[in-house]
Computed example of a mutant assay.
Amino acid sequence: MLSNVKAVLFDLDGTLVDSMSMWKDIDVAYLQKFHLPVPKTLQQDIEGLSMYQTAVYFKKTFGIPDSLDEIQNTWNEMAYEAYTCTVPLKPAVKEFLDFLKEKNIPCGIATSNSRVLTEAILKAHQIEKYFSAVVTGDEVTKGKPDPQVYLTAAKKLQVEPEACLVFEDIPFGIMSGKQAGMTVCAVEDVYSMKDREEKMRLADFYIKSYEELL
């Protein structure tokens, strides 16, 4: 898998950290504040969107009176404690990052999440030192499956897209990496188990744990 790879790019939520189910709970709690029901298709509708795009979706779909900045700030506040105190890394993440460092393979993050929460959880787990480039949803105009976030990360690392290996946990993320011209490894995650076959079809590789790569 790592043959001819000059850089490794990671999604964050569901790929490096176990946080996807928490976001579903936040969406429910947020809509409850406005006494609004949660549509059955909500998670499917917002999958892959940046936080800004999700705020636009919420405002238009549910008629939220708050500004887009206020919506995003509320979500950041709701998630911040969990990101700094309770959201865990997926098994063997640190060991795999150490392995890549030993191989002198630079790493980057390409996430739809906010800069505030991304930096918070990297610092909480003391893994920020492993990443030479961090691109968040705050910095791109198009969410996944558009390749913009991955192309931006590759550019920051000064590595051609075809020499990058991507780790992703959801179909839209896998599509984003593939559309960027990168090799993609799908990562198993409880939240996306329903999409397991689709993930295996879309990706070049599939792992249940980073332990398989050590």
Rank of each mutant, 00 (worst) to 15 (best):
residue 2 L to W: 09
residue 2 L to A: 04
residue 6 K to G: 01
residue 7 A to N: 06
residue 8 V to E: 10
residue 10 F to C: 08
residue 11 D to L: 05
residue 14 G to E: 04
residue 15 T to G: 09
residue 15 T to L: 01
residue 16 L to H: 02
residue 19 S to T: 07
residue 22 M to V: 13
residue 23 W to L: 06
residue 27 D to T: 02
residue 27 D to I: 00
residue 29 A to L: 09
residue 33 K to M: 15
residue 37 P to T: 01
residue 37 P to H: 00
residue 37 P to K: 01
residue 40 K to W: 01
residue 40 K to I: 12
residue 41 T to V: 05
residue 48 G to R: 05
residue 48 G to H: 05
residue 51 M to H: 11
residue 52 Y to P: 06
residue 53 Q to S: 11
residue 54 T to Y: 03
residue 55 A to H: 02
residue 56 V to Y: 00
residue 59 K to G: 07
residue 61 T to N: 03
residue 61 T to I: 00
residue 62 F to E: 01
residue 63 G to M: 04
residue 64 I to T: 04
residue 67 S to A: 05
residue 68 L to F: 00
residue 70 E to M: 07
residue 72 Q to G: 07
residue 77 E to I: 11
residue 77 E to T: 15
residue 80 Y to T: 02
residue 80 Y to H: 12
residue 80 Y to M: 12
residue 82 A to W: 03
residue 85 C to L: 12
residue 86 T to Y: 04
residue 90 K to V: 06
residue 91 P to W: 00
residue 91 P to H: 00
residue 91 P to Q: 00
residue 93 V to W: 02
residue 98 D to A: 06
residue 101 K to C: 08
residue 101 K to F: 08
residue 102 E to A: 14
residue 103 K to M: 11
residue 104 N to R: 14
residue 105 I to F: 04
residue 106 P to T: 06
residue 107 C to Q: 13
residue 110 A to R: 10
residue 113 N to V: 08
residue 116 V to S: 06
residue 120 A to I: 10
residue 123 K to Y: 09
residue 125 H to R: 10
residue 126 Q to N: 15
residue 126 Q to T: 15
residue 128 E to P: 07
residue 128 E to M: 07
residue 129 K to T: 15
residue 129 K to Q: 15
residue 130 Y to K: 03
residue 132 S to W: 07
residue 133 A to H: 01
residue 134 V to P: 12
residue 138 D to F: 02
residue 138 D to G: 09
residue 139 E to C: 09
residue 139 E to A: 08
residue 139 E to D: 03
residue 146 D to C: 00
residue 148 Q to P: 09
residue 149 V to S: 06
residue 150 Y to K: 10
residue 152 T to N: 06
residue 156 K to P: 08
residue 157 L to E: 01
residue 157 L to I: 01
residue 157 L to T: 03
residue 157 L to A: 06
residue 158 Q to Y: 06
residue 159 V to Y: 01
residue 160 E to N: 11
residue 160 E to M: 10
residue 160 E to D: 14
residue 161 P to L: 01
residue 165 L to Y: 02
residue 167 F to V: 06
residue 169 D to N: 13
residue 171 P to F: 02
residue 174 I to P: 11
residue 174 I to G: 13
residue 175 M to T: 14
residue 176 S to H: 06
residue 176 S to Q: 05
residue 176 S to C: 09
residue 177 G to Y: 08
residue 180 A to C: 12
residue 182 M to T: 12
residue 183 T to D: 14
residue 184 V to M: 14
residue 185 C to R: 06
residue 186 A to M: 05
residue 189 D to G: 14
residue 193 M to Y: 10
residue 193 M to R: 14
residue 194 K to W: 02
residue 195 D to F: 11
residue 196 R to C: 14
residue 198 E to T: 15
residue 202 L to H: 07
residue 206 Y to R: 05
residue 214 L to H: 03
